[in-house]
Design a protein around this nucleic acid. Sequence first.
DNA 1: CATGAATGAGGGTTCATTCAT
DNA 2: GATGAATGAACCCTCATTCAT
Lengths: 197, 197, 197, 197
Amino acid sequence: MSPKIGMEPIRRQQIIEAAKHCIVTKGLPHFSIKDIAKAANLSTGVIYHYFENKDDLLVDVLKDSFSNTEKLVKETVDAASNYNNKMKAYLETVAKVPDENPDFYIILLNYLAQAPYNEELKRIISRFFQNLGRFIEGILQIGYKEGVIKKIEKGTAANLILSQAMGLAFYYLISNEKINKDKINRDFVEIFKKYIE
Amino acid sequence: MSPKIGMEPIRRQQIIEAAKHCIVTKGLPHFSIKDIAKAANLSTGVIYHYFENKDDLLVDVLKDSFSNTEKLVKETVDAASNYNNKMKAYLETVAKVPDENPDFYIILLNYLAQAPYNEELKRIISRFFQNLGRFIEGILQIGYKEGVIKKIEKGTAANLILSQAMGLAFYYLISNEKINKDKINRDFVEIFKKYIE
Amino acid sequence: MSPKIGMEPIRRQQIIEAAKHCIVTKGLPHFSIKDIAKAANLSTGVIYHYFENKDDLLVDVLKDSFSNTEKLVKETVDAASNYNNKMKAYLETVAKVPDENPDFYIILLNYLAQAPYNEELKRIISRFFQNLGRFIEGILQIGYKEGVIKKIEKGTAANLILSQAMGLAFYYLISNEKINKDKINRDFVEIFKKYIE
Amino acid sequence: MSPKIGMEPIRRQQIIEAAKHCIVTKGLPHFSIKDIAKAANLSTGVIYHYFENKDDLLVDVLKDSFSNTEKLVKETVDAASNYNNKMKAYLETVAKVPDENPDFYIILLNYLAQAPYNEELKRIISRFFQNLGRFIEGILQIGYKEGVIKKIEKGTAANLILSQAMGLAFYYLISNEKINKDKINRDFVEIFKKYIE
DNA sequence: CATGAATGAGGGTTCATTCAT
DNA sequence: GATGAATGAACCCTCATTCAT
């Protein structure tokens, strides 16, 4: 039923972007297939040529968001040469997300709230964090090998870094004032040093 | 419109608890007034005697959740005598929430996801975190006066503690395995020492 | 089931007046028993002590309106001594209704619109117009006996006077400007002379 | 929102006719969207493809009724050649409405009763009567130019003719017996001569 | 008598999904 | 492929009416 992979990836992407737009502007529970179609300048029917149903489309939206973010982080960090530069690149990339790509956290938050009621979403989100955690562990491993940081329990550190980032990001979401946001952002970067140095 | 305050607080509470049950079992966007009524063993109509509409009821559910949690934290901490005991009481209370009152974080997460689209929810959540932040600052202040901890920037510390708790809690939500949860929990308590000692 | 007549006529009247107020301010289809109760400063339940149900109450409201108007017209005309004075009294009374008792026509219009779907209302309204028609015929009869007017077909004249009054009154209802209303009013009185002189 | 003009005027008309049927058989306040759908042999949802909401649909029903009547009157009168024929055509057309198109007055009455509570309806009805009034003035003007009738105040005459028609029509509505209806009808035509000759 | 909480059918409306064109 | 009209279940909410207190 679902179209063969590679058939019309442009249309699929067009629909996914429209769905993201709807999530960001209206919230996951507050838009219809018609809203997506309107945002994509398409008819409602065509969406069902590219996606089995609404749920399937929404799952693909999350996968797309995650894969974009993973790619961004990995490319930035891989381009840096040693532990210090890699960690700096990672920190800067993550720190800039709320301002430069605020959609990501909004979308993540929307799906996170659905995770307890949807095993598939839960699995996808879980895997994303595991991947990111392992990636951070990789960076820390380099630091250890270079003798720049002391040996720490990898799992713990990765968990803490991730949760810290998430916590700050969500906290950030509900703060209106620019000044407060900047402060939280600085705090966010500062705290990493406490962990790892 | 809504019944005089004090009129039938039992029914109001009964409905609020039923709504909480629905949020926890089905998720904020996935239950109807009829579901709440069924959960409360009431007819649908009666809900509108006690609440103006569904949105109002859901706002009251959040307020109720927050006020319960605030009360629990404050009472536990106030019962402790000095900085060390107070901080220990705080840490233990917060650390136990995910296991002893898992509903709280699920409910919070559901509302947090709606905050970007609803100014009232945003305000209520904001105020809750502000209150909790000030409360933590108060504990730290005591520690500083007693000479137990070094002077630290209060705002930062409070923010970090809060966001750490939130981040871990949500991370916790998507972890299935008991063993992983326990570990995260231990990490959570451990990290506080890094901040404040 | 319905309370014995004479039991609490004050309460009945209080409720009827409240219902009239609701009809005039909101329109027959747009208010509830609760609205009536609120307007009468009573509880909803008590209305069912004095009226079998909403329909019965609304029938009684119409009867009350009609009996008031009939009484007013008859008393005014009966107080006049001869044909000329009687007809003058009638014309003035009717002409003043839209301004002095605008509720009457609004209430009448509301019920008239229901007449095609409710035999009881139809019968009550029919009887009211028949009574008024016969009353006008009586005045004309006096004029004929006094030799003041020429013999005319009574039924026709009465019908025409009534319908003219009704038509102008409803036309009047939808005219906003005071100046227009005054003009229509003057036209209304003027036309009677054409009929009968 | 509403479909492009010209898209599916047949469906729109189908729904409007079904709504008219409901008004005539049940009365404006006593039918639901579901009733309309059933009368039109459609599902409930489709109505919202063609009309924004129930109120909008009902407004369009009134507009449709008025435009039909205006067209009928104008076409009939325009086809006549001089004043006498035009006025005769007008009188006959109007006199026949209650028997040949009894729905019109029932529908009009239903909306008239809502006019005091709905500015839009009031405006539409007002405009209809103004148009019709001006049209009658036009006929009288011709009669005056042809020297057939004496000069009369146009506004007054038009108002009186209209209100007479309305009054008789509504009076007619509540009369059951056929004989009575016929008599009123004859009276209606007769009265015009008194006005204008 | 009086109250107002409770019931549940029914109203207007939305929306995921299908399918004839 | 693409369209958007059509379906009908489900949603939020109102309200006439009842009845325990």
